[in-house]
Simulated scan of single mutants.
Amino acid sequence: MKKVLVFVTDGFADWEASFVTPQINKPDTGYTVQTIAIDKDPKISMGGLTVLPDYSLQDAPLEFEMLIIPGGTGWRKEKNHQAKKLVDVCFEKDIPVAAICDATTFLGMHGYLDHLKHTGNSLPYLKEGAPHYRGDEHYIEEQSFSDGCLITANGTGALEFTRDILRKLGILEEEQLREWYGLFKNGSVNKVVD
């Protein structure tokens, strides 16, 4: 099974990866979801869910297909910026990175958004949270945006974020993806929204 890693911190926004992880983890996809954190200590989400990480940064797998980084309160804590090592590996090896909400601010703090099209909670929010950010001209006002090996989303775009991830991993074909999105966005498989 090919691995997709979800980076968790104390205070991670559990709902931001809640649509995508069950779709990736279905038995027929060929993928499995595993968690990674700076260490193997249990992490407690904003919703009070306790997650025991599968990996720490010290024993991260050498091969994986994507890194998903939910937002949350943890990205304002310096200790979690150790995740930069893993993100560096992803960019060096062209492994897709998918970040949502404050995880996009974390990427902005470290220059990953300076040369790729991206989105986030808002441009002013991103600039306030990441003072060294220099990607203004590449900022796109969208719920989620994919550019090469980077997927970014604002905190209200979990469905669009999921859609972009599923497309990138090839888990659902376009018609299936439209139906899936329509179901969760509108509560009906008959009404399709692009």
Results as ranks from 00 to 15, higher is better:
Gly182Met: 09
Val8Gly: 01
Glu16Gly: 09
Lys26Met: 06
Pro61Phe: 00
Leu49Met: 10
Ile151Gly: 01
Asn80Ser: 02
Gly30Lys: 05
Val89Asn: 01
Thr21Pro: 03
Gln34Met: 08
Ala99Leu: 06
Asp41Glu: 15
Ala13Ser: 14
Leu150Met: 03
Phe7Lys: 02
Val33Lys: 11
Phe184Met: 12
Asn25His: 14
His132Pro: 00
Asn25Lys: 08
Thr152Lys: 01
Asp41Val: 08
Glu141Leu: 08
Glu16Arg: 07
Glu173Ala: 14
Asp10Tyr: 01
Val193Lys: 11
Gly74Asn: 12
Gln23Pro: 03
Gly148Phe: 01
Thr29Asp: 00
Asp59Lys: 01
His81Val: 06
Leu107Gly: 11
Lys2Glu: 15
Cys101Phe: 04
Ile95Glu: 07
Gly11Ala: 13
Val89Ser: 08
Leu52Ala: 08
Lys127Ile: 06
Lys77Asn: 14
Ile140Val: 10
Thr35Ser: 11
Glu92Pro: 05
Leu116Ala: 14
Ser56Met: 10
Leu159Asn: 08
Phe12Trp: 12
Gln176Leu: 07
Lys127Pro: 02
Thr104Ala: 12
Leu62Val: 11
Lys43Val: 00
Asn80Leu: 01
Met46Ile: 13
Thr105Asp: 12
Ala37Met: 02
Cys149Ile: 14
Val189His: 15
Gly129Cys: 07
Glu65His: 12
Gly148Ser: 06
Thr152Phe: 01
Thr29Met: 00
His110Asn: 15
Phe19Gln: 08
Tyr55Gly: 12
Gly47Thr: 03
Asn190Glu: 15
Arg134Thr: 05
Asn25Gly: 13
His81Ala: 11
His115Val: 05
Lys117Thr: 03
Pro96Phe: 05
Leu5Trp: 13
Gly170Asp: 08
Arg134Asp: 07
Gly135Glu: 04
Glu173Gly: 04
Ser56Gly: 15
Gly72Pro: 14
Ser45Pro: 04
Lys3Asn: 12
Phe184Val: 01
Gly187Glu: 12
Tyr125Glu: 15
Arg76Cys: 00
Leu169Lys: 05
Ile36Asp: 06
Lys93Ala: 11
Thr50Lys: 10
Thr162Lys: 05
Pro27Gly: 00
Thr9Pro: 06
Met66His: 07
Leu183Ser: 06
Glu65Trp: 04
Phe64Trp: 07
Glu174Met: 07
Ile24Ala: 02
Leu5Tyr: 12
Cys149Asp: 13
Asp54Ala: 06
Asp94Gly: 04
Lys93Val: 04
Thr105Leu: 07
Ala98Lys: 09
Leu113Asn: 08
Thr104Ser: 15
Tyr133Ile: 02
Asp14Ser: 12
Asp102Phe: 05
Tyr55Trp: 10
Ile100Tyr: 04
Gly47Lys: 07
Cys101Gln: 13
Ile100His: 10
Leu159Tyr: 06
Tyr125Leu: 15
Glu137Asn: 07
Lys79Ser: 12
Thr156Gly: 09
Ser45Ala: 05
Thr152Val: 09
Asn80His: 12
Gly111Gln: 11
Ala130Leu: 03
Ala83Glu: 06
Gly71Thr: 14
Lys93Pro: 09
Ile69Gln: 05
Leu150Asp: 03
Met109Asn: 13
Glu173Ser: 08
Leu57Pro: 09
